[in-house]
Design a protein around this nucleic acid. Structure first.
Lengths: 107, 107
DNA sequence: CGAATCCATAACCATGTTGTTATGAATTCA
DNA sequence: TGAATTCATAACAACATGGTTATGGATTCG
């Protein structure tokens, strides 16, 4: 996952409505109509949130008839989670080393 | 970690410069001056990026004399990583269930 | 076919973000 | 003390974001 993708993914995740949409998709695919009904904003606003999530690779959209089904796409989120976990591990390891250095009894 | 915190954390992570700063801090604390030298933008721009990271809880700043030392704060990032991992697991588990349903031989 | 439904896009407005330069407070150095 | 260094903040410009309403294409229903 390159830097531009991380921009898109984290930016997409930085909005509570979009995280709410992703939470809605945890139980399975939903139509745009169903998603719109679950929030207090207009359908065009939902459509744009979905475009942002789609562009970030966090959801896929499939048009079937006049309905568009939206489903979570776990892989991209997994990459972002890996990126974050990598740094968390790095920092934690560093602090543990610092703890060893600062508080070691074996000096 | 509440929704507002997640807004701040993911928003902070959505900028390549800020992720670069965090990468710089993986090896230990840095002064604002050192961080500024590592990027091609002005010192005030760096200061504001640091404020965003600080506000999100991703770094801490300590003033010592006339220098401000910046260090990564792993805990907040860990919470965000957990949040993400939770959904990744949820989606993946769902898809695995779907796979079982769709491709099971035990019907 | 005509009406209704589903959804995307355009146009617009208010607000937020990210860069810049200018400036000044606090600290250190000579 | 005077000069230099470090850093934060203010003010501004350019652009991005997120909401709205209006609209129209595609599909389905009667």
């Amino acid at each position: 996952m390159n830097s531009e993708n991380l921009d898109l993914v984290f930016s997409a995740l930085s909005d509570a409505t979009r995280r709410g949409i992703l939470a809605n998709l945890a139980k399975g695919e939903r139509t745009v109509h169903e998603i719109t009904a679950a929030f207090d904003i207009s359908q065009p606003a939902i459509s744009r949130h979905l475009r942002v999530l789609d562009h970030a690779g966090l959801v896929r959209r499939e048009k079937r008839g006049r309905e568009t089904y939206v489903m979570a796409s776990a892989e991209t989120a997994a990459h972002a989670a890996d990126w974050l976990a990598h740094y968390v591990n790095f920092w934690t390891a560093h602090f543990e080393r610092m703890d060893q250095i600062l508080f070691s009894n074996e000096e």
